[in-house]
């Protein structure tokens, strides 16, 4: 009888710890505003590049990946593009990819931009803001650093300086 009661007590506390811990943990780690946070897996996507070829997030598994959301209308996106290109060239020999996802603009704007800035990394076109919404973006540019295991190492909101970018990519390649 007595040990039975103790068992019930322990079971209830265990339940409270697990459920309560989950609830509190969920509120702590669910990053505000719906952006996928550190340690989480970014939402998958399937988008066309400028040549009409389909690219999927899964294709990049096993490589260090930088996903950069950009648009020609966003000045911060424009300024960081040459730095991204520089990083891409610098680490071209490593398992490293940069994917720029354009924020649902039209072909002409994107291709002109690619030409103007000599972008050689992959550029994908979002359509009807679907991927942008799935990623919960609120401001541009936003850049995700995804480790080879497919989890997010870091998220940067706003235009990155050279140093911001270099530090993160170095860390990403080390992981």
């Amino acid at each position: 009888m007595k040990s039975n009661r103790r068992l019930i007590q322990v079971l209830i506390f265990l339940g409270v710890l697990i459920l309560g811990g989950y609830a509190i943990g969920h509120s702590l780690f669910a990053s505000g505003g719906g952006l996928p946070g550190k340690g989480q897996t970014p939402p998958s996507f399937a988008l066309l590049d400028m040549d009409g070829k389909t690219h999927r997030l899964e294709d990049y598994k096993g490589k260090a990946l930088v996903i950069n959301f950009w648009g020609t209308f966003c000045p911060g996106c424009v300024t960081e593009t040459p730095d991204l290109e520089e990083q891409y060239k610098k680490h071209g020999d490593k398992p490293f990819e940069i994917v720029g996802i354009n924020l649902s603009e039209d072909n002409l704007a994107i291709s002109n931009f690619i030409k103007q800035y000599g972008v050689s990394y992959t550029m994908l076109q979002d359509n009807n803001r679907q991927v942008e919404r799935a990623y919960g973006l609120k401001s541009y540019p936003t850049t995700f650093f995804v480790k080879p295991d497919g989890t997010i190492m870091d998220v940067f909101i706003g235009a990155m300086g050279k140093q911001d970018m270099d530090e993160r990519i170095t860390k990403l390649l080390a992981s």
């Binding site: 409270v16 459920l19 309560g20 609830a23 509190i24 969920h26 509120s27 702590l28 669910a30 505000g32």
Partner: peptide, 15 residues
């Protein structure tokens, strides 16, 4: 209402 301490209060009320 999404903060950890508010959820914590609800968990305590539940307990």
């Amino acid at each position: 209402y999404e903060s950890w301490w508010f959820i914590g209060l609800l968990v305590m009320i539940g307990t």
